[in-house]
Structures are given as C-alpha cells and as structure tokens.
Simulated scan of single mutants.
Amino acid sequence: MDTDGYAWDVQVSGNYAYIADGGNGLVIVDITDPTNPELVADMLWFTLFGLHYME
C-alpha cells in the first residue's frame, strides 16, 4: 500500500499495521488479507517518525 508520506517505522499487532508516516502522521492499515491491505485510519494532525509497541 502506498501512503502519502514516507514510512519511517512500522509495527504490526494482530491484523493491523501501524505506520509512522512522517508528516502524514499515523496510518493504520488492516492487513487481514496481505494481498489486499485496506486503509483503516489516517491521522494527519501530527508528525510521527517512530513507534514503540508495548504489550
């Protein structure tokens, strides 16, 4: 999936990929079907360059 920004970091949890997309903020993608990823949310209200996942 092509995002509007530059993917600085990606974390996967379950069926979702959380993408730190620089100036495009946080992009959340449903990867249940990896051959057909679907955009869930695109949070443009902040700049994000890294992610840290804690379980």
Rank of each mutant, 00 (worst) to 15 (best):
N24F: 07
T35Y: 10
T47E: 09
N36C: 10
E55V: 06
W45F: 01
M54I: 14
D42G: 01
D42E: 14
T3Q: 03
D4I: 06
Y6P: 01
Y18P: 04
G23K: 15
E55D: 10
N24W: 11
Y18D: 04
A20N: 09
G5K: 10
D30T: 09
T32W: 01
V12I: 14
P37K: 03
T32D: 04
T32S: 09
V27A: 01
M1F: 14
L44S: 01
V40C: 07
Y6V: 01
G22V: 00
V29S: 00
A20Q: 02
N36K: 15
M54L: 15
N24G: 14
D2I: 08
Y53I: 07
D30S: 11
P34L: 03
L44G: 02
F46K: 06
N15S: 13
V27C: 12
N24V: 09
P34E: 10
Y18M: 06
H52P: 00
T35W: 10
V40G: 03
L44E: 12
V40N: 05
I28E: 05
V12M: 08
E38F: 09
G14N: 06
Y16F: 10
I28W: 00
G5M: 11
Y6W: 08
L44R: 12
I19L: 12
H52C: 08
P37R: 14
G5A: 07
L26G: 04
A41L: 02
V12Y: 02
N36R: 15
D30C: 00
S13P: 02
G50F: 08
A20M: 03
N36F: 05
Y53C: 03
